[in-house]
Amino acid sequence: MGALDFLTAVQNQDGGWPYRMGGPSAPEATCHAVLACALGGGERAARAGLTWLTRALGDDGALHLPEEPTPHWTTSLVLYVLSTLREAPDIQARVVRRLLAWQVQLADTDAMVRLNAHLSGWSWNEGTFSWVEPTAYALLALKRVGWGTHPRVLAGTTLLLDRVCATGGWNYGNPEVMGRALPAFPDPTAWALLALQGSFVPLSVIQGGLDFLAREVPSYPSVLALALGSLALSAWGRSVDGLVSALRARQSVDGSWRQQVAVTALAELALLAASGGEHAFRL
């Protein structure tokens, strides 16, 4: 069985996808699964997923989880999916406005951490502090819809540059705490590199991130790191042969990777991109 077989088998009746089979539909898992199905030939499943995603958006253009007044970080991912699949332009415009108005908490300069706390990126939940991953999701989405030169996007790009680790690549948070350089990790590094496509940024930052991924990911013990590492490296034109074979070796007989929907979708998108198919995250 292939990944698409697994994804269609675990799709919920409401059209969305859970993180794990049998769970409630979750926006992040649905976004990645919709992309994997749409680009991999599962149009019908993707269509049902798209309907679930657009229904999950509020009138304000933000995605709110049930009983949660605060806009959720997956708002960016929904915009990315709609834009990539050229769906619902009116809804896209609403989401763009909401993302550009996204409020973050700025902090005073803290001697404990080495970062510019006055920079605005995007947060996991609106009204909290900016972090690398939600900022990368928002940059990807806004660039995809053609808002790459908006001041808010440029500010988010500056934030990512501010958070580069000394070793190259990105930690999920700060590059340094109390004088101690923090390590980079594969998943935030991959998202940041994908988000910096098309930006005028120092080549050394990109090279440093790519070198980090090429060095760390082949021996990293997780499918998520292999999938995202492969997507980021291939988006920037680097070879991913070793990662592809490692990914294939870890695929289960049911077509999934560890029976996790979001991870399976990302792994399938990585294989699709590596095999000459459409690259879901190349801008």
Partner: peptide
């Protein structure tokens, strides 16, 4: 759950 409250459970830290 981080999927709802973010990482590092950021809403709660605030």
């Amino acid at each position: 759950p981080g999927a709802r409250y973010g990482w590092p459970k950021n809403l709660l830290h605030w």
